[in-house]
Design a protein around this nucleic acid. Sequence first.
DNA 1: AAGCAACTGAGACTCAGTCTCAAGTGAACG
DNA 2: CGTTCACTTGAGACTGAGTCTCAGTTGCTT
Lengths: 167, 167
Amino acid sequence: MPHNVDREISKFQDFLQQQGLKLTGERTALLREIFSTHYHFEADELLFKMKEKNVKISRATIYRTLELLVKSGLVRRVHLGEDHYHYEHVSGNSHHDHLICTICGAVIEFHDETLEQRQREICAKKKFTPTFHNLQILGVCNSCQRKGQQPDAPDRVKMIQATRLRK
Amino acid sequence: MPHNVDREISKFQDFLQQQGLKLTGERTALLREIFSTHYHFEADELLFKMKEKNVKISRATIYRTLELLVKSGLVRRVHLGEDHYHYEHVSGNSHHDHLICTICGAVIEFHDETLEQRQREICAKKKFTPTFHNLQILGVCNSCQRKGQQPDAPDRVKMIQATRLRK
DNA sequence: AAGCAACTGAGACTCAGTCTCAAGTGAACG
DNA sequence: CGTTCACTTGAGACTGAGTCTCAGTTGCTT
């Protein structure tokens, strides 16, 4: 059953109004798409999916809307060790960090309050006011360890590439 | 007094020989440059500095050598929240993480064993074998808090741009 | 309904990073 | 001591994510 995005849409609208901006059809369509899945995504992936669904929206608009969504706090940029941005939506207060398998590319999310607390302590000691953090732990996941790892991850890589498109 | 890079050069040579590769003049020159400073750097910055010193080395060679250095373990890639790679050299076993000021761009390094230990525990619980991690905490540094922050960081940004060059 | 600022798409542009290829270099070996 | 041959290099073409521009469109506000 799909997540109900109305709450997010109305939050986004509030944010936009506050800035004198408008909630357009393109923006709501994107928001629906983003909140309909619960995994990390890339800008290009969104472009592909929207095209697949015959929702007309340009690359420029996607980037522009993502920027607004990040500013509004509904979406955040995460670094997954690759050379371009990934995004994830913020549902409630579900902050988490990532274990990233360098063999198969799997991304495992986790949240650990002890870690969070310790980070706050470190910041306090340095008189630094944290707003956000980003932790990636790279390594080898359980199933790849058992498989006896291959140097690369053709399956996973191919799968990811199949979801990309630039006309 | 400059850091003595001979140890690093000989380590790199060992690594190269092991792979059937050669230690060339360009590679040692780069290594000297990298280990002569103790701060994060970008590929383009290196290109600029080498040009400044009239050491002839091409962009392609810089990228190729950086790749080798990362593989050899003498240099590591770090993510500082920007859209391109940053590097830092590994001196001894000085692993550290970063506090990054979103106002002035300052990067504060820290190391915390409690944090490291907790990460190992989390990985163990998830049966994940970590090889490396990367933690950035974004926020506002002490001096920016006192200054009453400006939205951007013209000084710092200009300074960084001044060290870049692409002919 | 008019006015006007926000918005959009197409495509040019930027720029970090990669690739290609012809020419250079150096260790090993006869 | 010269040949060989794989490794290197530089110049510049190329790639691809992300940005910018600009003319045309949309949609609040009055």
